Computed example of a mutant assay.
Amino acid sequence: MTEDQIIRKIAVIFVTDVVNFSTLMEKNENSTLRSLRACRDIMDQLFKKYDARIFNTAGDSVLAEFQSAVNAVVCATEFQKMINKRNLSVSKDLQMQFRIGLNVGDVIVEGTNLYGEGVNNAARLEVLSQPGGVSLSKAIYEFANKKVEFKFTDLGTQKIKNTVLHAYDVIIEGLEQRVLGSSNEPSEITESKPPTIAVMPFKNMTNDEEQEYFVDGVTEDIIANLSSWKSFPVIARNSTFSFKGQEIKPSELGQRLGADYIVEGSIRKGGNKIRISASLVDSKDDQQVWSKRWDRSLDDIFEVQDEVSQEVATLIFPALKGKEHERIRTKSPSSLSAWDNYLKALAIYNQ
């Protein structure tokens, strides 16, 4: 490895410091340092128990690395509970409170020390934390939420030192639950927008190349009809047809095309009969939202093409709206975007 090579890794970062440490030191250096040592002994025992490594200290601040996000949350919460218990057993001048921030992210390794955005965001969350509390990033929350017995308060997106982070508080007995206003900076709120649809080339199940023009024509007409609704963006034909003939999961197609929903289908011909199948799939979880099948006579192939493509477009819109309504039911009113509010208003109007 060369000297200028940068080593990176993903790490769970724990950052803490003492509330009003400078003020405590001004009042009584000796008692403050004794209290700090006593609290650090508690921390060291918990770090040993939960396999944590201190990689930096500065005065009252401690930065540690955990191998597990779950262990970090449990350790931080137990520490705050033990410190609170200690404070109840000592005089007021010996009491001490800590703030803790937890984050998981990319860090730079330099010897035994860690640097980078992953560390910086943990420090920002520590600043956001209330005295005696634990604040954590959304990534930590998603790792630990279903694996610990603690409950959490969703603080929404918060602007901390020119950075916007989605933060959570661990609910600790005896500590007031906070409700913070969301930041006006770009966040999850602005990310919620009308869903994008990609209509993939329908499959020709007849093995008759002469029918390829008809199959492609149905796909193109569905794209045109959906686009004419102007209710949500539709991926251009050139982009979707570049995947023709490839077997790719809807979730991967969604990532590569930037689409929230995938329309896919097939066409099978037998004699003078034709069967067209179409379905709408949520690209986030590969779940089928809607599907339908048409059996038609080929007396007028263009009439069949127009009828089916128009009906597909007409039926997809209410199916998609239903799915989107399910999504916004789980969101708080303060986090609704213009698209979300449009859907809610439309539902009320149609009642």
Rank of each mutant, 00 (worst) to 15 (best):
I189M: 08
I189W: 09
I189A: 10
I189F: 09
T190D: 13
S192Y: 07
P195H: 10
T196Q: 08
I197E: 06
A198R: 00
V199T: 12
P201R: 06
P201M: 11
N204H: 11
T206P: 09
T206F: 11
T206I: 11
N207G: 13
N207L: 14
D208Q: 14
D208L: 10
E209M: 13
E210A: 11
Q211I: 14
E212V: 14
E212K: 15
Y213S: 15
F214V: 15
F214H: 12
V215N: 10
D216F: 15
V218E: 12
T219F: 07
E220S: 15
D221F: 12
I223A: 13
A224I: 02
A224E: 05
N225M: 11
L226C: 13
S227T: 13
S227N: 05
W229N: 13
S231I: 11
S231K: 14
F232W: 00
F232E: 03
F232Y: 10
I235G: 03
A236C: 05
R237F: 04
R237Q: 03
S239I: 02
T240V: 09
T240L: 04
F241E: 05
F241Q: 01
Q246L: 07
E247M: 03
S251Y: 00
L253K: 01
L253Y: 00
G254K: 00
R256P: 01
R256F: 01
L257K: 02
L257W: 00
D260Q: 02
D260V: 04
Y261S: 09
Y261K: 07
I262A: 08
V263K: 06
V263L: 14
E264A: 12
G265R: 01
I267V: 15
K269N: 06
K269P: 07
G270Q: 08
K273P: 02
K273G: 13
K273S: 13
I274T: 08
R275G: 12
A278F: 00
A278W: 01
A278D: 02
S279F: 01
L280C: 06
V281R: 05
S283A: 13
D285K: 02
D286P: 00
Q287S: 03
Q288N: 06
W290I: 08
S291G: 05
R293N: 11
W294P: 08
S297G: 08
L298Q: 10
D299C: 06
D300S: 10
